[in-house]
Design a protein around this nucleic acid. Structure first.
Length: 565
DNA sequence: CTGGGGAGGGGGCCC
DNA sequence: GGGGCCCCCTCCCCA
């Protein structure tokens, strides 16, 4: 007995889930576009993917071989077995598809493309369609500014490309919208290292419309002359749980998108069955051949360890029974390609059990449901039967919910005060003066005579000059971190920190050295760096007289003095 | 090979 | 929100 449509229905469901970002556990980076998908599906489709996603949740594809537009079709094909109808896909597009399919070892797709090209009597070009990486310019496509054919550098046949872009224009899947939120941050800087180094792209202004999409991770250089990212400030899509309701404008664009996989493609689909060599058993080619074609260079290993004092405190104070880790199959988000994208969630790599950190899924869940309000969405570790389907757990109270939407609705009922860790509930923090701390209420203002630091934290007794700073500090005691990274899900207590973190994902280095052209993610780094050119060494060791350009190196040096040797 | 310095990069947090 | 600083990790170079 066999259900005739079982496989089809299963794939349909999976594609719907992809469209919603549901249970997606891998992000594929193609130039400046990100695609969410399921590891299992990719692994089942291509041994190339299979090898890549074993350890990485973030895969960076070779932009010489595939561009975002093509990969979108590839991904659609993987999930549906269908391509756009042949009259909607130009020969040039088939060439690009063939290139991508070969590169990704999607042999069925490659065979399909070959057949179509052969049928059309065209020569096969199993080469990149362009030396400029087929920068099909999703940014441009998404931009409200009209795009001239010349701007689409990815294809020589710009008219056909444009036509294809138009075809795709109105059928963005949700993963692309997710991409939009990320990539619009830096329309000038793609994720490829080629543009991150010197920022050779032209200046981008808000007139392009990209910034309306809401993410600005750029900075302005102090000099201004060497920086290309001239963008106006705009809001960040992530918001605190308290302000989540304000994000409806963002959410609307998601909700309007089609989730039916059929709508992901238009026109008459071309079924995979057209490919002559489409044998189900031919999905996995010779592994040796696979190795030889592997294109992705491994990223430089990133900083791994950190003190994470606050996170350790969080772990120690998490309520019993509250799931912390949403860890989806390895969970380690590492850059699969260029170093600009080689960020790794350090705690994830270290296997820490910190729910606040393990939020790739939370990010997806927020995309699925409240979009920007799912700061409390964490999957239960494993799938404990006792919880049934209530896999989405509210960290503060431990309640489980079957969907992120319900959890988000529940989270709204929590007040800030509830999220705050009361002093009496927390014995994990060092107290400078416990007796005094006991007398402090959350509203207490300590006046220490002429001391201007009148605002004391009731948890750790630190004092601050103004209530805003105190409030900012108090967030470090919260169980939850209100600002998640859209890419890796890492959570931050301050929006600025998250924004800064996002720059590392996107390779944004707005601060350029006028002397050597080296670029930095932070002004402070540039200031430090400038001492290299000036020869200034303001930090002097009082023990040996050694001088240093950076304070941290003096500190490191001092350890050498103090450590027993 | 090892230790030390220089420097790039990331996160936390206060102002 | 941005700036600045601290702390950390890491890599690279060189003696």
């Amino acid at each position: 007995m066999e259900l005739p449509n079982h496989a089809k229905q299963l794939l349909l469901q999976l594609n719907q889930q992809r469209a919603k970002g549901y249970l997606c556990d891998v992000i594929i980076v193609v130039e400046n576009a990100l695609f969410r998908a399921h590891k299992n599906i990719l692994a089942a489709s291509s041994i190339y993917f299979k090898s890549l996603i074993l350890h990485d949740n973030l895969i960076n594809l070779d932009t010489d071989m595939v561009n975002p537009s093509i990969f979108r079709q590839v991904l659609d094909f993987i999930y549906t077995g269908k391509l756009l109808s042949s009259d909607q896909v130009s020969d040039h597009n088939f060439n690009a598809l063939l290139t991508a399919a070969s590169y990704l070892q999607l042999h069925d797709l490659a065979a399909l493309c070959r057949k179509k090209l052969k049928r059309n009597g065209r020569s096969l070009h199993n080469k990149p369609t362009t030396p400029t990486n087929g920068r099909t310019s999703r940014n441009q496509r998404l931009s409200s500014t009209p795009v001239t054919p010349n701007q689409i550098s990815g294809f020589k046949d710009s008219e056909k490309t444009k036509r294809h872009e138009e075809l795709l224009k109105d059928e963005l899947s949700e993963d692309e919208v997710f991409v939009r939120n990320v990539q619009c941050a830096n329309p000038a800087n793609s994720l490829s290292p080629s543009t991150s180094k010197n920022g050779s792209n032209g200046p981008i202004t808000s007139s392009g419309g990209l910034l309306e999409l809401g993410l600005d991770l750029s900075k302005k250089s102090p000099s201004g002359s060497t920086v290309t990212e001239e963008v106006s400030p705009s809001s960040i899509p992530q918001e605190s749980p308290q302000s989540a309701s304000e994000s409806t404008a963002n959410s609307a664009s998601f909700d309007d998108l089609p989730t039916n996989p059929q709508s992901l493609t238009t026109g008459e689909p071309m079924d995979i069955g057209e490919a002559e060599e489409c044998d189900e058993n031919q999905h996995f080619p010779d592994p040796d051949q696979q190795k030889s074609t592997r294109q992705i260079s491994r990223p430089r290993r990133q900083a791994k360890g950190e003190s994470h004092k606050g996170e350790e405190m969080e772990r120690s104070t998490l309520p019993n029974g509250v799931a912390k880790r949403l860890n989806v199959a390895g969970e380690r988000l590492s850059g699969g390609g260029n170093s600009d994208l080689s960020y790794q969630c350090k705690d994830e790599e270290e296997g820490l059990e910190n729910g606040q950190e393990q939020s790739e899924e939370s990010g997806q869940s927020e995309n699925e449901g409240g979009r920007n309000s799912a700061n409390y969405v964490y999957r239960q570790e494993g799938f404990e039967p006792a919880l049934g389907d209530n896999l989405y757990v509210c960290i503060p109270c431990g309640k489980g919910f079957p969907s992120s939407e319900e959890l988000n609705a529940h989270v709204e009922t929590h007040t800030e005060e509830e999220l705050y860790i009361k002093e009496e509930e927390d014995d994990a923090y060092p107290k400078e003066d416990e007796a005094e701390a006991e007398d402090l209420s959350s509203q207490t203002v300590q006046v220490h005579g002429v001391d201007s630091r009148r605002f004391c934290c009731t948890v750790c007794n630190k004092s601050y000059k103004d209530p805003a700073t105190l409030r900012q500090h108090e967030k470090t005691h919260w169980l939850t971190r209100p600002f998640p990274c859209n890419i890796c899900g890492k959570m931050f207590t301050q929006r600025g920190t998250m924004t800064r973190h996002m720059r590392s994902h996107l390779g944004l280095k707005p601060f350029a050295c006028e002397e050597c052209g080296m670029r930095f993610t932070r002004q402070y780094r540039l200031t430090e760096h400038m001492r290299v050119h000036s020869g200034e060494k303001p930090y002097e060791c009082q023990l040996c007289g050694g001088k240093f350009t950076q304070q941290r190196n003096l500190i490191s040096h001092l350890r050498m003095h103090t450590s027993p040797s």
